[in-house]
Each structure stands twice: as structure tokens, then as C-alpha cells.
């Protein structure tokens, strides 16, 4: 059996003396599409930061392809939550994508500038943004800026793509486009996405991780109804913000039990 792409064992994390994550265990296999759901303040973003190596666990281990995170920067591509931070920054879409190609250990060497630019342009093209390469990021719309940030993550040639609430600043059309894009990317990449979005959970995710201090993982929730059950189980137990919606859906399919998936 191959090494799982993410392996978390007995992880605890505290912030200001309070437990944020308690006894978290998680194994994500290659090719999975995991949706991380849970209430605000439940520890979703903390979990993501631990996986990225931006935070260190109080106890327990996080391993990315068998190594601690941070040592293998290329394995994870990260798309941050905020699209509008540092909006006035003087950089073109191309410059932002090229930041993904930057490797500090090659600081002194002459970088393969041309090759990097071609790769960056390819990544932008894949996301339909090649025509905007020279535009300043200020002049792009929220959705376009997000595509640029995804291109920046893709250009690092990741095995795992981590997205933190990517749909927060997109309209519903933008969201649908975005999810089909993720599904396409999922053919080559493992995807881990933090989302409140019911749409993503019901139609795109293969697995669900419910995070509210503890983590419940529901792997390969195949059919929509199974998925709904898993989601529902999370909702009752952890009081998700959308649990009332789930209850309504449950009313429409009374034959399904409410057990763990």
C-alpha cells in the first residue's frame, strides 16, 4: 500500500490555553476529494495550517507523503481564503503565478526565467486566464484573482491542493464554474477544501471531514444520500450552521438512517 498523502496521528492543538483540536486522526489517500466542514471556530483553518506546516502541533504528528510538512514545499499547493488582501500590490497576474515558481534555495543561481514564465503561462492558460497575464491584480475581478491564485498553487506542481473557503467571495455562477474546475483538477490531484458550501459537499466531494475540536472522517461517501447522511451525522452531533437545512433534506428521504457513514 502506498504512503497516504496526508497522515495525522493523535494530534492536539491549543490556542491561548484552550483546546482547538483534540485527538485528531486523519488519513487522506491519493486522488481523494475531501471537504472539510464544521462550525466557525471549530478548528478548520487551524487544521489546514497544521497540514501546511504553518503551525506546529502541541502533540501528535502530521505527515505529508511520509514527511513532516514544510520540508517538501512542492507537495502542497495552497490557495488562501482571502482574495482581496494586499489588493494594491504592484504585481501582474504573471508575477503572482511566478511567485509559485520561486525556490529560496536557488536564490543565488540564475533562475530559468524563460522556462518559469512558460510554465506560469501554461498554468494561467489551463485556468482560462492567459489573456490576463499582464494585467495588474487590482484590475481583476474576484473570480479572476482566485484563478490566478490557483494557477500560482498549480505551478508548484503539487500532489495535494489545499483550498481554504474558496467560494467565500464568489457569486453562485462563479461557484459552479469553480467546482467543475476543481473536479477536473481532481483527476490528477488530491484535493482538500474547507467549505461551508452544501453544493460542494453534495455533488463534488468524495469524502467529508467534520471538524469541531474533534474530527470525524467519512471516506468514499459514494452516493448523494450516503453523503447526506454523513453530513447529517456531523450536523446533529457538532451543530453545523447548516444543520437545519440538512434536517429539511432528511425529511424528504425518511428511509435513510442517521448513522455515521
Amino acid at each position: 500500500m502506498s504512503t497516504p498523502i496526508v497522515q495525522i496521528d493523535d494530534l492536539f492543538f491549543y490556542y491561548n490555553g484552550q483546546v482547538v483540536l483534540r485527538d485528531v486522526n486523519l488519513v487522506v489517500e491519493r486522488g481523494d476529494f475531501v471537504s472539510i466542514i464544521g462550525p466557525n471556530g471549530g478548528g478548520k483553518t487551524t487544521l489546514v495550517k497544521l497540514i501546511l506546516g504553518l503551525l506546529k502541533p502541541a502533540s501528535g504528528t502530521v505527515k505529508i507523503q511520509g514527511h513532516p510538512p514544510g520540508n517538501n514545499g512542492t507537495a502542497i499547493g495552497y490557495v488562501p481564503q482571502y482574495l482581496n488582501h494586499n489588493l494594491n500590490f504592484p504585481a501582474s497576474a504573471m508575477d503572482v503565478v511566478l511567485m509559485g515558481k520561486y525556490d529560496p534555495s536557488r536564490r543565488m543561481l540564475f533562475r530559468r526565467k524563460k522556462k518559469d514564465r512558460i510554465e506560469a503561462l501554461e498554468a494561467l492558460d489551463k485556468l482560462g486566464m492567459a489573456d490576463y497575464a499582464k494585467r495588474k491584480i487590482t484590475d481583476l475581478s474576484g473570480g479572476q484573482r482566485q484563478r490566478v491564485l490557483i494557477a500560482r498553487a498549480l505551478v508548484t506542481r503539487p500532489e495535494l491542493l489545499v483550498l481554504d473557503e474558496p467560494t467565500a467571495s464568489l457569486d453562485s455562477k462563479g461557484q459552479t464554474d469553480f467546482f467543475s474546475l476543481l473536479k477536473e483538477l481532481n483527476q490528477e490531484l488530491t484535493i482538500l477544501v474547507v467549505s461551508h458550501d452544501l453544493l460542494i459537499v453534495s455533488s463534488y466531494a468524495k469524502s467529508i471531514a467534520c471538524v469541531n475540536k474533534k474530527l470525524h472522517y467519512h471516506r468514499d461517501v459514494g452516493t448523494t444520500s450516503e453523503l447526506m447522511n454523513a453530513y447529517y451525522a456531523c450536523a446533529v452531533e457538532e451543530v453545523c450552521p447548516v444543520d437545519h437545512i440538512m434536517e429539511v433534506i432528511q425529511d424528504y428521504s425518511p428511509s435513510e438512517g442517521a448513522g455515521h457513514g
Binding site: L54, G70, G73, Y78, A91, M99, S105
Partner: peptide, 21 residues
């Protein structure tokens, strides 16, 4: 000497850190 590092950090601190800056 540190221009590319400073550029990456100034635009997006977290991403820069993940890249090993």
C-alpha cells in the same frame, strides 16, 4: 540579494512561508 524573498513575503506571507522563505 533577498529581492525575490521580500517580494513573495510582501505579497503573501503564508504562501511565502510554505515555499520555504
Amino acid at each position: 540579494y533577498f529581492f525575490q524573498d521580500l517580494l513573495a513575503m510582501s505579497y503573501d506571507e503564508e504562501f511565502a512561508q510554505i515555499r520555504g522563505v
